[in-house]
Each structure stands twice: as C-alpha cells, then as structure tokens.
C-alpha cells in the first residue's frame, strides 16, 4: 500500500486528485457543478473505551472553505477533528458508530487504509512539532521522501512551493539546512504547515494551531489559513471565538459531545438559532 501515486503530479493540484485513490467499491460521488462537500459526517458517535466523547453528530463540511469547530474544553472538538482522518484511532480502545464520508467514500470502510486517508487529509497540531533531528528542508520533505519520492529537482521545487505557501520561504531560504527546532514558535508552526502541505493533501485539519503563539504570530497564521483556503479544505478547532469569527466561513458549535449548531459563521455569531450557542459566544459559559 505504499502508493506514491498521490504525490506524483508535480504541481499543486489538491482537489483535482482522482477519487479512486480511496480503495473503495462504493459509487463515485456525484460531480455536481456546485462543489460537492468535502466531508459528510453521518450520525457519528465516538467512544474511548466506555466513554462516549462524540454523540450522534451529523454535519457536512464544505470543500475549499474554512470550517471552525468551537465549544468549551472537553466537549469533543479534537476528537471530532481527529476522526476526520482517523488519527483518534491512535488512542487505545476507540470505536465509532456512524459514518464519515470523504469525497463520497466511507473512510471507515474495512478495506480503507488509514495511511492513505492521512496522506489525503493532513493535520497540524496545537503544539508545533518539527522533527528535532531534521533540518528545515528535511522537515518539509520528510513526507515525500519516506513515501518514496527521489527526484531531486522535484523535491527542491516542492520545498520552495510549500515554504512559500506557508509564508515562510523568505524568512528561511538561506537557512534551509538549519535544524527545524531552531526557529521561533510561530515559524515552527508555519514549518509544520509547510510540512503538511508538501505531501499535497486535499484537506488540512488544524487543532488549535495558534493557541500557543503570541498575537503577531497568530495573526500570521490566520492570514495564512485564509490564503490556504483557496486550494484546501480547512477544518480548524479553536478556543478563541474571535479567531473563529475572523477566519472561518462555517462554524460548528459542540457541547458535551453533541453538535448544537452548524451554520455559516456570520449566522452563528450574529443570529444563532440555539440558546446554548448564544450563551457560549456571548461568554455566558464555557
């Protein structure tokens, strides 16, 4: 299953990737003229052992848009996000009920390889985590190299592209051989974003990507997320309500593992339909 096909096209064409990448016999998603959704989550429940962390969530995440997931601490934001590329399975004894369709295909179907899923759906974490033994360049290219890409010219090109897209190129172009962990916190996080987009995923999942950064670095990351949404579907978990309001198109509000409300960000922040959403965004709890 070491298919390197997914990273073969030498240009950044994330959404043009053929759907049969997911080994699945199910019917192809209808290619409607208006963009099909990136994810369709259907009656999803997620368990850690006996504990139910997500309960009966149904929502549709539009493609090439920014969707924010908000909610009080422990409500299941990270769990829901991680279930979108099966990262939550790294914890022992996890179990799901329901479905997650990605580009029309069930990513939990038995024949699906989570490794392939994760190649198509990248992730950026709260704590920036460049690999400590690698240089800046190696960090960016590690995903390609370990998946068998050897073409040097292609790698060099991809290195620059990814760093440019992560708005880091100008700052590091002369220090590409320096250790990734020698960068500042904000730069490290952008390096992690570059690393994630270097493998040309279709989606970027971000779990509080700016919560450990100072305001200036946060602003940079937000700007970057906005630019990325031209090419990528972005799902971002945030604690910070202003952040959700500033940089997302849609917002999902979770509370105690349930989806309370999902709507356009404008609607959620100006005219929520649910009482609980209003309480939360006006700071009455959480």
């Amino acid at each position: 299953m070491e298919s390197a096909a997914i990273i073969d096209p030498p240009m950044i064409t994330p959404v043009s990737l053929p759907q049969q990448q997911v080994a699945s016999g199910s019917e192809p998603a209808d290619v409607a003229p208006e963009r099909p959704p990136a994810f369709a989550v259907e009656r999803l429940s997620i368990f850690y052992g006996e504990k139910k962390a997500i309960e009966d969530v149904t929502l549709t995440i539009p493609s090439k848009m920014i969707t924010a997931i908000i909610g009080p601490s422990g409500c299941g934001k990270s769990t829901l996000l991680r279930s979108l590329n099966r990262m939550h399975e790294l914890a022992p004894n996890t179990r799901i009920e329901g479905k997650v369709l990605f580009a029309g295909d069930d990513i939990y179907a038995p024949e699906v390889d989570p490794v392939v899923i994760r190649r198509r759906i990248g992730m950026v974490f709260q704590k920036s985590n460049p690999f400590p033994t690698m240089s800046i360049a190696e960090n960016v290219l590690v995903g390609l190299k370990l998946n068998g890409v050897r073409d040097r010219a292609f790698l060099r090109e991809r290195l620059e592209q990814s760093l440019r897209m992560a708005a880091l190129w100008d700052e590091v172009k002369n220090d590409l051989h320096k250790p990734g962990i020698s960068l500042s916190g904000g730069q490290q996080q952008r390096l992690c974003i570059a690393r994630a987009i270097a493998v040309e995923p279709e989606v970027l999942l971000m779990d509080e990507p700016a919560s450990a950064l100072d305001p200036i670095a946060t602003a940079k990351i937000e700007e970057l997320i906005h630019e990325l949404s031209a090419n990528y579907t972005v799902v971002i978990v945030t604690h910070n309500m202003q952040q959700a309001g500033r940089c997302s198109d849609y917002t999902a509000f979770l509370y105690l593992g349930r989806l309370i409300e999902f709507a356009s960000t404008t609607k959620i922040f100006t005219n929520p339909s649910e009482r609980q959403t209003e309480d939360y965004i006006t700071g009455r709890f959480g």
Binding site: M1, E2, E89, L90, P92, D113, P114, V115
Partner: peptide, 9 residues
Amino acid sequence: MAPPSGLGD
C-alpha cells in the same frame, strides 16, 4: 490501535 496498513507494517 490503528489496523495495520500495508505489508511493510
């Protein structure tokens, strides 16, 4: 635990 992916794993 994630199911094993691929022969290498």
